[in-house]
Design a protein around this nucleic acid. Structure first.
Lengths: 140, 140
DNA sequence: TTGAACCCTCACATATATGTGAGGGTCAAC
DNA sequence: GTTGACCCTCACATATATGTGAGGGTTCAA
């Protein structure tokens, strides 16, 4: 597909897709006319990138962890240098910290919302609370 | 305590503490000479702010959720407007999305690391994983 | 009284992720 | 062959979180 379709399917501006390419988070082949061409798997890839960016990881780090994320556990450890492994270990731990921080705070917000809506359970309040109530995540 | 001590105890530059105050994430009282004064509870508060910033939340949002985070469940729901509740609900869900995204990716990275270190579990690999404390990979 | 070590405000600088638009090709349909 | 919807590169603009430093007070101890 070309950049326009990828843009629509990932809800990501063309500008950003080119930027991600510049940052080497994605690559593209080029048609004879110079247009970028992407295959299906870039839809997921781009959404993954956006999620990570939104969760505070910079492109520089995302670029490093992306190779760990290919679905079929393709073997790319041969090229893993010790520094790379150290970086990944560090980032794994930083991600865990972020997760714990978010869980703590998300739960506080949820608790607050529950308290408010629990206090007065009528209509006007209802729609505000409706949207979502998933509250338990188990993690390291 | 004054800004210098808070800065050291939270590992946050004075500049940033003033910035957080400007963004209304924290407040300070002023000594007669104009110096900012903080009490103990700002140590935790600042660390909470840093964690949330690092997890991708902008100050504008952090400001909104902070009131939900005071340890003794002080009653501030009286002032909660419906728009505020809708915002909180939205943010709670966005936090949950971030959490899931991070968990998914963190687990992939962890799995990758386990695969690599599990593959050859001897000394040579060990120091590679050990090394990570100060890791700054730069790119061109 | 001087100096060090704090503090203040203000302002400019930087990095990162993003938007916007100019100037210009490609291509299919009319 | 013109039009419209794509695509390209390049460059400037913006927002947010941060660094850095100038110019200047306050406090305290040598």
């Amino acid at each position: 597909m070309r950049i326009g379709e990828l843009s629509e399917r990932t809800d990501t501006s063309r500008r950003l897709l080119r930027y991600y390419e510049e940052q080497q988070l994605i690559v593209s082949t080029r048609s004879p006319n110079g247009y970028r061409e992407y295959d299906e798997r870039f839809v997921d890839r781009v959404m993954q990138i956006r999620g990570l960016l939104d969760a505070g990881l910079p492109t520089r780090i995302i670029k490093q962890i992306l190779p760990c994320l290919d679905k079929p556990r393709t073997i790319h450890f041969p090229d893993a240098t010790p520094e790379m492994l150290a970086t990944l270990t560090l980032e794994r731990d930083r991600m865990t910290e972020r997760i714990n921080c978010l869980i703590r705070n998300r739960d506080s917000v949820a608790e607050y919302l529950d308290a408010v809506s629990g206090g007065l359970a009528d209509g006007a309040r209802q729609d505000a609370v409706m949207a979502g109530s998933r509250t338990d995540l188990k993690s390291a």
